[in-house]
Every structure is written in structure tokens, then in C-alpha cells.
Amino acid sequence: MADDPDPLTPTIRPATPADLDFIIALDRDMTGIEKPEYWRGIYDRFGKGSEGCILVAYTDDRFVGFIVGEVRAWEFGSPPCGWVFALGVPADLRVQGVGTALFEGLCDRFRAAGVKTIRTMLARDARLLMSFFRSQGMMGGPFIQLEKELAG
């Protein structure tokens, strides 16, 4: 079986407006849908103030990923905790430590904000992403998502 490639050691920093086009393009590559207005809204909400955090990763001036998170308090009765709600790394650079560096950077921000739990929600068939978050030590939490199709 082939070995994984050598790990990268990206620089992690908060996103600036100049990173938005890279984020939009990477998200388009991952999801198949280009959502520039959505990402500009995310940047206005999380990239500028204290509500949340967008971190980007670069190696040798190449954009190699992003992560978005925010602290949410008392949703579903939960004490303040950090939510990760977007993570992107180009397909050819995965399993090389970029996601881990971004995740750890976000954890540092959440710790500094005083929260002790980090949480996310995933499609249950998103195996690669779920494996990544589990490799970071995340386990099933105390909440279960339920839903129902509404009759027309």
C-alpha cells in the first residue's frame, strides 16, 4: 500500500478580503457549486468581528485551505462551545497535516475565547471528513440531529 505524502507545515492566519476568491474557488471545487455571495456574507459576519473566525493556510505563498468557526452559546441548551462549520483543503493536499493545522489554530482561538468544547455536524456519508474530525479526537456528542419531511 502506498505511503501518505510528507506532511506540510502551513502558516495559519486570519483570512483577509484577498483570501476570499481562493476560499470561493476551493469551496466550488469541493461542492460543485460556486457561492460567492454566501462566502462574502460569511466573511462579513465572521471575518471582521468577534462573532467567529475564518482561518486560512498557506505554504510557500500557495493557498492550501481554510476553516470557519464560531462560538455559540445556549443553542439547544448547550453552554458556550466552539462550532466548526466549514473546512476545506484541496484534494491533492489532503492527509498532509493542513487540516490538522487549521483545526488546531481554531481550537487555540476557541480556548482563548474561554470555551472548552469544540463541536461540528456532518453528513453521515461524509466519510473522509468524519474520519478527519475523529482523528482529531472528536467523538459522538450529547446531541442527536432529528428531522422530518414536511407535507406540502
Binding site: 456519508d125 466519510r127 468524519m130 474520519s131 475523529r134 482523528s135 459522538g140
Partner: peptide, 22 residues
């Protein structure tokens, strides 16, 4: 069953080794 499969398919040997060390 679906939740069981999703859980087991997302935990790698390396993740288990990390859990064991912890």
C-alpha cells in the same frame, strides 16, 4: 444500523491508536 456503519467507517486504525494512547 446506518449510524453504526457511519461510526465504524470513520474510525481508522490510527485514530484507535491515538485513543489507546490517550
Amino acid at each position: 444500523d446506518i449510524l453504526t456503519e457511519a461510526t465504524l467507517s470513520s474510525i481508522t486504525v490510527e485514530t484507535m491508536l491515538k485513543m489507546i494512547r490517550r
